[in-house]
Design a protein around this nucleic acid. Structure first.
Lengths: 121, 121
DNA sequence: GTAACCGGTTTCCTAAAGTATACCAGTATC
DNA sequence: GATACTGGTATACTTTAGGAAACCGGTTAC
């Protein structure tokens, strides 16, 4: 009756792994907001903390470190008094934009569907 | 689901909300594998459980319900003896393919970068 | 009758993710 | 000398995601 495609299929794995990689990088409650915030311009630590509503210093610090490790965000220390730290997107970080746009478009369509579906009882 | 964090910038919010919607739907350890499994053909419950390596009945049931609620997956009960249940992707579920492709392409590039970066000690 | 399939549910538990709060050294302002 | 800014840490706590295992009624096959 049903065709028996095996998922343990390496073909399948080959597709899944990079998708997982991408999703892992965007996972968590805050990374996305941080990236979008940086897409709108470079930011300093406290500045981001004020902008990304509700995030604690601990989480912001943790997420920025992960993003930096993944080469999406650059951390620059300026030798001013007091020392200021500037966070910016790398070119690589900016390369996420098409992915974010694909997600955004799909998400918009989804919202539209869910809303119009909810109208007729 | 849980997303009440108003980002100060309304422009920013407008972009973030649909992206979050999309990511929420793909979030978790199993949804992606379930979707890819169903992209390869319709499946019955036990069949998927065998195919998606390591998933428990509890999680499979839970994730399928969520995917069904989001109209990505259709559950069909066939009046055979014993009753069989068939899961399939909706057209809407299939509409995720461009998103998955965008994620996959970016993930591939990311892998390539991380690997080539690791080479020079 | 008993074992093994079907499509799940229930309960309990752990590991991870995230939160709250206090704290650090340094500088500048009143 | 108290307050508030800079960029964060440290510790302790709660909340959630996911896992393990037992169980359910029903059907078929031995």
């Amino acid at each position: 009756m049903t065709l028996n495609h095996t998922m343990s299929n390496p073909e399948c794995r080959r597709h899944l792994l990079p998708i997982r990689d991408a999703l892992d990088i965007l996972s968590g409650k805050w990374k996305l907001q941080i990236l979008v915030s940086l897409l709108l311009g470079n930011k300093r630590f406290r500045e981001m903390q004020r902008e990304v509503d509700g995030i604690t210093a601990r989480m912001l610090s943790k997420e920025l470190k992960e993003l930096e490790m993944n080469r999406l965000v650059k951390r620059t220390v300026h030798d001013t008094t007091p020392v200021t730290v500037e966070y910016s997107l790398t070119d690589y970080g900016r390369s996420l934009q098409p992915v974010l746009t694909a997600l955004e478009n799909w998400g918009l369509e989804h919202r539209r569907r869910i809303l119009t579906e909810a109208l007729p009882v």
